[in-house]
């Protein structure tokens, strides 16, 4: 029995010794508490959110294509401050009650208010040539549209009223839901916003930022020496700045030059065929 006590004592001494060493001989580090679960609220500051809006405005949103110094569309430098005034304008048709709501609305329903002189031709400034940015090829997410709104307010110098995104809302990296390939030329022309700048029988309501595409049926073949009609059109779509028709009327760098990345070959062929009149017109032509 005495032996057992001795052994138990010996074991306890070495174990307590080990424990005492960890307590005294080793510096005490208190491990960090488990992190609070990540939510986007609080994770992103307003500065970052505005910066995101900035990037969307100048990048993905393609806003500066028209909202630029060439005044294809009105400048938006101070829209954040003017929004409240627009709500009181008799021509305003929307449902927004605050500046923030208006800004958001104008992204989704651009025709709610059209600045005088910027409407679609022949509509007497009742219809905007701008596309719904939440759809089509631009397809901004809610968070991105909020970010743009925040950016517009911020750059106008007014208080940003947009709430920071909550939940695990996607920011930037997230790819937008797959855009479906167009099924026919009419759809393709809509999808790639050709209608915003060009006119053509397949386009319901065209714009005048770019040249009318209707004459191309006959002219395309002779536009450029040594190029067939199809070759020319392909070049004109994929590399718009290769040749500017009527340089006095139309500016360089206006037409996006990223169609090579965005279009499928089928879509491009559909558009080219349609422009050359090969597509049966019954679908598009009313």
């Amino acid at each position: 029995m005495f032996n057992i006590i001795k052994i138990v004592f010996f074991c306890l001494v070495i174990w307590v010794g080990f424990a005492a060493y960890t307590l005294v001989g080793i510096p005490l580090i208190i491990p960090a508490a488990p992190p609070v679960e990540e939510r986007l609220t609080g994770e992103i500051t307003m500065e970052q959110f505005v910066a995101l809006g900035d990037r969307v405005f100048h990048g993905k949103g393609t806003c500066t294509l028209c909202h630029n110094a060439l005044l294809r569309a009105p400048l938006l430098d101070s829209i954040g401050a003017e929004a409240e005034a627009i709500l009181k304008d008799p021509r305003y048709k929307g449902e927004a009650t605050t500046g923030e709501e208006y800004l958001h609305e104008s992204l989704v329903h651009p025709s709610a208010f059209v600045v005088a002189g910027f409407g679609k031709k022949g509509t007497n400034d009742t219809v905007s040539p701008m596309a719904d940015v939440s759809k089509g090829a631009i397809a901004l997410s809610d968070v991105e549209m909020d970010a743009v709104t925040a950016y517009l307010q911020s750059s106008a110098g007014v208080d940003v009223t947009v709430a920071l995104p909550s939940g695990d809302a996607p920011v930037e990296e997230e790819e937008v839901a797959e855009v479906k390939p167009a099924e026919n030329a009419t759809e393709a022309l809509m999808k790639f916003e050709c209608s915003m700048c060009h006119t053509h029988p397949l386009i319901e309501e065209g714009g005048d930022t770019g040249p009318d595409l209707t004459p191309l049926v006959t002219r395309a073949a002779t536009m450029k020496k040594g190029m067939s009609a199809k070759q020319y059109l392909v070049e004109a779509i994929l590399d718009p700045n290769a040749m500017i028709v009527e340089p006095d009327t139309y500016d360089e760098d206006t037409m996006p030059d990223d169609y090579a990345d965005r279009m499928t070959v089928t879509e491009m062929n559909m558009i080219v065929d349609a422009l050359l009149g090969k597509e049966e017109k019954k679908e598009g032509g009313e």
Binding site: P27, I29, P35, E38, E43, Q48, A51, L52, V171, E172, E173
Partner: peptide
């Protein structure tokens, strides 16, 4: 007081920098 700097502490799983995560 004695300093216990760990020179290469374990990194977090994600960090925030350059305005993103």
């Amino acid at each position: 007081p004695v300093e216990l700097r760990s020179i290469h502490p374990a990194p977090p799983s994600s960090i925030k920098a350059f305005g993103k995560r």
